[in-house]
Measured scan of single mutants.
Amino acid sequence: FIDQHRAALIARVTNVEWLLDALYGKVLTDEQYQAVRAEPTNPSKMRKLFSFTPAWNWTCKDLLLQALRESQSYLVEDLER
């Protein structure tokens, strides 16, 4: 899901800070967390977050999807259609 809908997630996720907090310490290191937060816009934050995903396994991507479902369920539901 995460890889399949990358472009839509970059464009449409609005609550990136919540995602970062949910992933911090589980998937994201402090350095990665700070790097994403330093980006000026939500799309650039999501691009930076996605720059780390090639090194993630399915469990990490599932944690991101779970966080998306909790914070932006309407968006996930729309993309699952």
Rank of each mutant, 00 (worst) to 15 (best):
W58G: 15
E70D: 12
W18M: 14
S73A: 13
K61Y: 15
M46E: 02
V16D: 03
P40N: 08
D62P: 03
M46I: 03
T41L: 02
L28T: 01
W58P: 15
Q32Y: 01
Q4T: 15
S44D: 15
L79S: 01
S73C: 11
S51N: 02
Q34W: 12
W56M: 13
V27R: 01
P40E: 11
V16E: 01
E17H: 04
K45H: 00
L68N: 06
A22G: 08
D78M: 11
A7V: 11
Y74L: 14
Y74T: 15
L28K: 02
L23K: 05
D3H: 05
T59E: 15
D62E: 14
E70P: 06
D62Q: 13
A35T: 09
Q66P: 07
T41Q: 07
E39L: 10
W18V: 15
L68M: 08
F50Q: 01
L9T: 01
H5L: 13
Y74H: 14
F1M: 04
I10V: 06
L64H: 04
L68P: 06
F52S: 00
V13P: 08
V27H: 03
D78A: 10
R47W: 07
L75W: 01
V76A: 04
S44C: 10
L20D: 07
P54G: 14
A8D: 15
F50R: 02
V13F: 07
A7D: 14
I10N: 03
A38K: 13
N57V: 08
Y24C: 09
T41G: 07
T29A: 06
D30C: 06
N15F: 00
T41E: 03
Y24H: 14
L9Y: 05
L75P: 04
L49E: 00
A22I: 15
L9S: 01
I10F: 02
R69A: 06
E17Y: 05
V76C: 07
R12Q: 12
V27G: 08
T14E: 14
K26Q: 11
Y74C: 15
R6V: 08
R6K: 14
W58V: 15
E17R: 05
Y24A: 11
L19M: 03
M46N: 00
D3S: 06
W56F: 07
R6I: 08
V76P: 05
E31M: 04
V13Y: 04
N57S: 14
C60E: 15
A55R: 12
N57T: 13
K26P: 09
D21A: 07
T41H: 00
Y74I: 13
Y33D: 10
W56S: 02
L28F: 01
D3N: 05
S71A: 07
E39N: 10
R37W: 09
K48E: 00
A8Y: 11
L23H: 04
S73P: 15
T41I: 03
Y24L: 13
S44I: 08
R12Y: 07
N57R: 03
W56Y: 00
E70N: 10
P43M: 12
R37Y: 12
L65N: 06
D78K: 10
D30K: 08
D78L: 12
D21T: 10
T29D: 05
E80I: 11
N15L: 03
I10Q: 04
P40S: 10
A11R: 13
Q4S: 06
L20Q: 01
W18N: 15
